[in-house]
Design a protein around this nucleic acid. Structure first.
Length: 940
RNA sequence: GCCCGGGUGGCGGAAUUGGUAGACGCGCUGGACUUAAAAUCCAGUGGGCAGUGAUGCCCGUACGGGUUCGAUUCCCGUCCCGGGUACCA
């Protein structure tokens, strides 16, 4: 019987479905394990070969855990709100729910083609009202809570209201807006209900506020930074302006510390945690106020992490946009300063980044006073100071900060050393904290540890500053001026927002006639007819962002059909948190930070059992594609001309446009010398009729050589490889194993089918072990030999260890080695082969199931078998092969009995003929014997 | 600029705690089978030098140093590539 992947895969796919082999129960005597894939957006383009990489890895792990005795939750669902469906709706008028439904069908069919062990009865979709009811519900809880800095958790806002009524807000240890005024109990009690509501917004964990957004009038929408390129929209290239808009915001900054310290308790890639740390950007330091020399009532506040360097301040730098700049600029400097401000405004951030070494700035003509020594400090403006960060002002210490040093050198400003350990002040700044302070007034002779508290208390006693912790992270804007998202369950009455009742959830997305914003710039929901709360009040018209639903979805899988809670307490207590989370690193500071934030909040409310919801996370690398371009001469000539890449030198004056070619037309795809042959050129002509009459200048071999570049796999580069095609040709088992065989899971690599035949051959060889020369299934009941047992148990050991380490590529090698060895031994012993079938089941689920049944079993190998146990007995060797090295170079290998003592080994090694040859008159200085490893003889 | 990764045969990659560098696969070369091809199977395959040959020697994990009996692995410096980035005071 030939190995026919198509046949067996169809057969078992059907069987698994009919018998609900992968259905998971919330009740089990087995320990639980939760394997989660990052939520995919069901794009209309479907899957390409890069998408399943992470799903295959997580599926192997889930199956491995299942066979190792765990009750494994491994679900799949869709983050089905999103822009592409809305864009499509705008173009076609088709409701996003309809196109999304269609896309999900395609997406799921593609997933099902790959043999995943998802429990599809738990599938969820964020755009399903049964799901977004709970997204809205969590939003409401955020609205009803504030962050208490003493309890260090979210508490009901009602507690804050009680406190305000009794004692005002002075002692309310609650996170709030920076500009919150102090009020007394009397003032609070004198407020109207509406005024009180507005005041409470300064404390709520979600609240509307005026914030700047990238407004694109032509598209009628707000764009993310990502969607803006060089001041115009990425899509369409329309102008974008900064516009103040009322937006809902999430007070994620209240959780900054917890999000930072929580990173220490989770096993995530270090680079990813580092990105989150940088994003949160906690810095501990002090704020100091410098009074203006000419106007002591006006102060410039700076934040510094090195207040100990304050005696080394020789100038002050303001951001060109700083509010004081206009006031303090002296008439003589006015022209230069204004010119500089204008110049800065014209520079893009990218330009500023690239020209980091070029020092620019202008003197304002004014001075401020260093509060510690009363000295005059000149005030400059410079574009290396950002208006948006901290106070937009920097106290410059050229001896300790390289940028300040560069600036001081350029403008001839003094550089005052402040620590006796600072070196080479003439060549560069030295930011050391070592040594004792000099030239430093009240801290002279102190060390860093002593100086900080001395200076901070000096500042605090005089009201000139204070110790301060500053974060880089901002509150997260939560409104989107879009249609296809969760409606915000709030309405407006006289400019004050109120929540709807929880019993009124879900607040359904109303139908609209068009998916565009209104002519007056209101979001699409403004088009909904008669959509008013109690037929009276205007609903909030913005919808929630893409990250709303994905910030809590892993709980929904635990109990997806619950109508009373987002998930029952029993379910949540049973599954608790995600044991393994697999996804791309592009979500490092978006989804993975927001979802941690929501989880901390749910934890505070007692709804989440653990502070961190994903204990272990691995990133899968991107599978890239090769983009193939051909060279089109840029000219006005009527006839278009393409030239082979190896002939470009013949056209020294020509300029070239790079035209991407469908990779299917290209021979030697991805190679340096990839090319279009005559047939490829014809295909290209047919595919691009606009180039039908073009001339193709080929080389002497008749080839049009292309340029290959590694890049994203994407429809726009015509290099998408659909997994369905690979599966049709080689089978899902082969596809799964090949993707794993490509290399380490976290590494990015270009897709290349070069090696897939090797995996395909392996599967045939593996299959062949079970069949005799006449192709009839035949296994032997005979007792396996010691050598055969060793092959099996080496594989068990290797595969077990490597799965735990997520080194799936080397697992595949281990299977190949085992199959090669057994083939060599002509082994068809049932005991050995059965072990291998279960061992390979997580990787190649179909072939394993087929062979398992051929071996005479019932049920499913994936549910009714157990992972083979490793027995170290079988790996024990009588003798061990030792490399014998002379001065570290291996010169011979010799077998010694496994139980030889160190002394015996040394003695035997010294006497070896091969060794004697190298000693040759020299003396043996030392012999190093590492048992079971090697022997090294040092001569000289 | 800063932060985080990485650099090993013709190619993808392996070497898990410092202990025989190149597992496994692709490709390539030769052979078997075949009328032939495909498929399959067998053998070889880092580079160089010497030898008819078995084999021996030298070089070799981006580059230059260091530690060590021994370094792909640890340390210092340099170069290059990838990812992130908000010049974060």
């Amino acid at each position: 019987m030939d190995y026919s992947p198509r046949e067996i895969e169809q057969k078992w796919k059907k069987y698994w479905e009919e018998n609900e082999v992968y259905k998971v129960s919330n009740q089990s005597g087995r320990p639980k394990y939760y394997v989660l894939d990052m939520f995919p957006y069901p794009s209309g383009e479907g899957l390409h070969v890069g998408h399943p990489l992470g799903y295959i890895a997580s599926d192997i792990f889930a199956r491995f855990k299942r066979l190792s005795g765990f009750n494994v939750l491994h679900p799949m669902g869709y983050d089905s709100f999103g822009l592409p469906a809305e864009q499509y709706a705008i173009q076609t008028g088709i409701h996003p729910a309809i196109s999304t439904e269609q896309n999900i069908k395609t997406f799921r069919a593609q997933l099902e083609n790959l043999g995943f062990s998802f429990d599809w009865s738990r599938e969820v979709r964020t755009s399903d009202p049964g799901f977004y009811k709970w997204t809205q519900w969590i939003f409401m809880q955020l609205y009803k809570h504030y962050y208490d800095t003493v309890a260090d958790k979210a508490l009901p806002i009602s507690q804050l209201v009680e406190r305000f009524a009794k004692e005002g807000n002075a002692a309310a240890h609650a996170v709030c807006d920076e500009d919150t005024p102090r009020i007394t109990a009397e003032e609070w009690n004198a407020m109207s209900g509406a005024e009180q509501q507005l005041f409470l917004l300064k404390y709520r964990l979600t609240f509307p506020e005026e914030s700047y957004v990238n407004w694109c009038p032509a598209l009628g929408t707000v764009l993310s930074n990502d969607e803006v390129k060089d001041g115009v929209s990425e899509r369409g290239g329309y102008p974008v302006e900064r516009k103040l808009m009322k937006q809902w915001s999430m007070r994620i900054t209240a959780y900054a510390d917890r999000l930072l310290y929580g990173l220490d308790e989770i096993d995530w890639p270090e680079s990813l945690k580092e990105q989150q740390r940088n994003w949160i950007g906690r810095s501990q330091g002090a704020s100091v106020r410098f009074a203006l020399d000419a106007d002591p009532d006006t102060t410039i506040e700076v934040f510094t992490t090195r207040v100990d360097t304050i005696y080394g301040v020789t100038f002050m730098c303001l951001a060109p946009e700083h509010e004081l700049v206009g006031r303090i600029t002296q008439p003589e400097q006015k022209e230069a300063v204004e010119k500089y401000i204008k110049w800065t405004a014209s520079r893009s951030e990218i330009e500023r980044m690239a020209e980091v070494k070029q020092v620019t700035g202008e003197f304002t003509g004014s001075y401020c006073i260093n509060p510690f020594n009363g000295e005059q400090v000149p005030i400059y403006i410079a574009d290396y100071v950002l208006a948006g960060y901290g106070t937009g002002a920097v106290m410059a210490v050229p001896s300790g900060d390289q940028r300040d040093w560069n600036f001081a050198k350029h403008f001839g400003l003094p550089i005052v050393p402040i620590l006796d350990a600072q070196k080479n002040m003439e060549e560069a700044a030295d930011d050391t904290k070592e040594g004792r302070y000099i030239n430093s007034g009240i801290i002279n002779g102190m060390d860093y540890e002593a100086a900080i508290p001395t200076l901070t208390s000096w500042l605090e006693e005089r009201g000139l500053g204070r110790g301060k912790i500053q974060y880089r992270m901002r509150n997260a804007v939560f409104s989107r001026q879009r249609y296809w998202g969760e409606p915000v369950p709030a309405y407006w009455k006289d400019g004050v927002p109120y929540l709807i009742e929880e019993s009124e959830l879900p607040l359904l997305l109303p139908p609209v006639d068009k998916y565009l914003p209104t002519e007056t710039g209101e979001p699409p929901l403004a088009r909904a007819e008669n959509w008013k709360y109690n037929n009276q009040y205007e609903y909030e018209l913005s919808t929630m962002p893409g990250w709303a639903g994905s910030s809590w979805y892993w709980y929904r899988y635990m109990d997806p059909h619950n109508t009373d809670n987002f998930a029952s307490e029993d379910a949540v207590q049973y599954w608790r948190s995600v044991d393994l989370y697999v996804g791309g690193s592009e979500h490092a500071v978006g989804h993975l930070l927001y979802s941690r934030f929501w989880n901390h909040f749910l934890y505070d409310l007692g709804l989440a059992p653990e502070r961190e919801y994903a204990k272990k996370l691995i990133n899968q690398g991107m599978i890239q594609g090769v983009i193939e371009y051909i060279h089109l001469e840029k000219s006005e000539a009527r006839q278009k001309r393409f030239v082979s890449a190896d002939l470009l030198a013949r056209y020294p004056d020509a300029e070239w446009a790079m035209i991407p070619v469908h990779v299917d037309f290209v021979k030697e795809y991805g190679k340096d010398h990839s090319y279009l042959d005559l047939k490829g050129i014809d295909q290209f002509r047919e595919w691009r009729p606009d180039f039908k009459d073009a001339v193709f200048i080929t080389n002497e071999k008749g080839q049009l050589v292309t340029k290959s570049e590694v890049g994203k796999m994407s429809k726009r580069y015509f290099n998408v490889v659909n997994p369905d095609d690979v599966v049709a040709r080689y089978g899902a088992d082969c596809f799964r194993m090949y993707e794993m065989f490509l290399g380490p899971i976290e590494q990015a690599k270009p897709w290349d089918t070069q090696g897939i035949d090797g995996v395909s051959k392996f599967l045939r060889r593996f299959w062949g072990l079970f069949f005799n020369k006449q192709d009839v299934f035949e296994v032997s009941e005979q007792q396996p030999s010691r050598e055969e047992l060793k092959v099996l148990h080496s594989a068990i050991k290797k595969v077990n260890e490597d799965i735990e380490r997520f080194n799936f590529n080397t697992c595949i090698s281990a299977f190949m080695i085992a199959a090669n060895e057994l083939k060599r031994l002509n082994c068809n012993k049932k005991e050995i082969l059965e072990g291998l079938v279960v061992l390979i089941a997580p990787f190649a689920p179909y072939i394993a199931e087929e062979l398992w049944h051929q071996l005479g079993h019932e049920g499913s190998v994936h549910r009714d078998s157990a992972y083979p146990k490793f027995n170290p007995e079988y790996l024990k060797e009588d003798s061990i092969t030792y490399p014998i090295a002379i001065n570290g170079k291996t010169r011979a290998t010799v077998d010694f009995p496994a139980d030889s003592s160190k002394e015996d080994l040394e003695k035997a090694a010294r006497e070896l003929e091969a060794v004697q040859k190298y000693i040759d008159g020299k003396t043996i200085r030392k012999v190093i014997v590492v048992p079971n490893r090697m022997i090294n003889i040092v001569v000289g």
